[in-house]
C-alpha cells in the first residue's frame, strides 16, 4: 500500500487528524512511506514526536503497535518469548507417554510463542504503524536487535525459522538524543529533527488544540513562550507546555496575558526553581 500519495497529501491527511505538520515533516513522512524506510524522529521533549506516529496511524487508518523502550528492555520483551510455563505444563500433562521427538516438536510451535511488539507488527496482515518510542533509553545491545527488523523487516526464531513481514509496517523511532545512537541504526533510517515551531505554526496548533482560545491571547502566549525559549533555561518550554498554558488561562478565564497573569501561572511552563527566578528577572515580573 502507498501511505501517502505526495508530500502535499501527507500535509492534508495529517492535518485532518489535527496534526499540523510543517513542510520538512510532511516531505519526510511521505518519503518514509514511499521508500519503505524507518523514520527516526529526534528533538526536545514535547514537540510532538510520538504524536506524529499516532497521526500517521490515524490518517491512514492503520493499526498502531507501540514498543516503549526503557533501560533493561531485552529480546524477550521486544521480540518474542517462549511460554515456559505452558511448555512445562504440557510436558507434565503428557506424563511421559510421548517420545522425545514428539514432545520437542510439539512444545516449539506457534501455540507456545508469545509475540511481543516487534514480531506482532511484522506479522500483521493489516497496514500497521510501528512506533518504537524513546529508543535512546535502551541499551546498545537492543539496537543490534532492531537492525534485522528495520532493514529486512524479518525476525529469525531459531526453532521456527525466519518470519518475514507480510506487509511492511510504517516504522517511527523517536529519540530525545540523551545518547548518541549507533551509526548502523541511523544509516537505516530517514532522519527528521523536530524543533520548536515557528510562531505562526505554533499559534495554529494552539488554536486547533485548545477550544475557546481567541487569536489575541494565542498570540500573546506564543510571544511569551518564544521569549522564554530565548533565555538560558534548563528546560525550555515545549509545544505541550504552551498548550497546557493556554488551557490553564482558559480555565482561569484570563482574557489578557499581562505580567501578573504570567507570574501567577508560570509553574505550568517552567519546571525548575532556577528557571523561575531567571524568567521573573528577565521578563521583569512582580514575584507571584
Amino acid at each position: 500500500m502507498t501511505w501517502f500519495q505526495s508530500p502535499d497529501d501527507a500535509t492534508t491527511s495529517l492535518g485532518g487528524t489535527g496534526y499540523l505538520a510543517d513542510r520538512p515533516t510532511s516531505i519526510t513522512s511521505y518519503l518514509a512511506g514511499a521508500l519503505g524506510k524507518p523514520l527516526l524522529v529526534e528533538g526536545p521533549a514535547g514537540v510532538g514526536k510520538t504524536q506524529l506516529a499516532k497521526a500517521v496511524a490515524q490518517a491512514t487508518g492503520a493499526a498502531l503497535v507501540r514498543l516503549q523502550c526503557y533501560e533493561g528492555l531485552d529480546e524477550a520483551r521486544a521480540l518474542y518469548e517462549w511460554n515456559y510455563k505452558k511448555q512445562l505444563l504440557r510436558i507434565q500433562a503428557a506424563g511421559g507417554d510421548d517420545s522425545w521427538r514428539e514432545t520437542h516438536d510439539d512444545i516449539f510451535t506457534e501455540e507456545f510463542l508469545l509475540t511481543r511488539p516487534l514480531l506482532a507488527a511484522i506479522r500483521q496482515d493489516e497496514p500497521t504503524v510501528l512506533l518504537i518510542d524513546e529508543v535512546d533509553k535502551t541499551d546498545v545491545e537492543v539496537e543490534g536487535l532492531l537492525l534485522e527488523v528495520l532493514s529486512d523487516f524479518q525476525v529469525t526464531i531459531p526453532e521456527l525459522g525466519t518470519v518475514a513481514a507480510v506487509r511492511r509496517p510504517f516504522v517511527v523511532l523517536t529519540s530525545n538524543a540523551t545518547r548518541e545512537l549507533s551509526e548502523a541504526l541511523k544509516r537505516r533510517c530517514l532522519y527528521l529533527h523536530l524543533d520548536y515551531p515557528e510562531p505562526d505554526r505554533e499559534r495554529e496548533i494552539l488554536l486547533s488544540q485548545v477550544p475557546g482560545l481567541d487569536d489575541a491571547l494565542a498570540r500573546q502566549v506564543v510571544d511569551t513562550v518564544a521569549r522564554l525559549r530565548d533565555l538560558e533555561l534548563k528546560k525550555a518550554p515545549s509545544i505541550a507546555e504552551s498548550v497546557d498554558w493556554a488551557r490553564t488561562l482558559i480555565a482561569l478565564e484570563t482574557r489578557e496575558l499581562d505580567a501578573k497573569a504570567i507570574a501567577d501561572t508560570l509553574g505550568v511552563v517552567l519546571k525548575h526553581a532556577s528557571d523561575h527566578d531567571r524568567a521573573v528577572r528577565e521578563l521583569r515580573l512582580a514575584r507571584g
Partner: peptide, 11 residues
C-alpha cells in the same frame, strides 16, 4: 528536506 532526511543524521 529530502537531502537532509537522508544524508544528515545529527542535528
Amino acid at each position: 528536506a529530502t537531502y537532509a532526511a537522508t544524508l544528515v543524521k545529527r542535528a
